[in-house]
């Protein structure tokens, strides 16, 4: 299985134009929103779109679980892998 952690970090940097950051600056387990990376609600929307574009993952806008999925790079990775498994399996 390919580790997509690095791809997700690069996606975050590119799509959110965090021009001064590198993938090493993003802690896989740190919160993305509020504290940690300090992203905001517009970033959340932008990330939702990016996940669709990069990994063909659809986000259900009304899902209660989104908050958990978007907590950190690690949770995004688990979410993407689970979604891909659902699609391919």
């Amino acid at each position: 299985m390919v580790d997509i952690t690095v791809q997700i970090k690069q996606m975050i940097i590119d799509e959110l134009e965090l021009e001064d950051m590198t993938i090493d600056d993003i802690d896989t387990d740190a919160p993305l929103f509020g504290e940690g990376l300090g992203l905001d609600s517009i970033d959340a929307l932008e990330l939702g779109l990016a996940l669709q574009k990069y990994f063909n993952v659809k986000i259900d806008a009304n899902s209660e679980h989104n908050k958990e999925h978007f907590r950190s790079v690690a949770s995004l990775r688990d979410f993407v892998l689970a979604q891909q498994q659902t699609v391919s399996g």
């Binding site: 959110l16 517009i42 932008e46």
Partner: peptide
């Protein structure tokens, strides 16, 4: 294509 929320805002 979907619009960028950042650009739109």
């Amino acid at each position: 294509e979907p619009l960028s929320p950042t650009a739109f805002s």
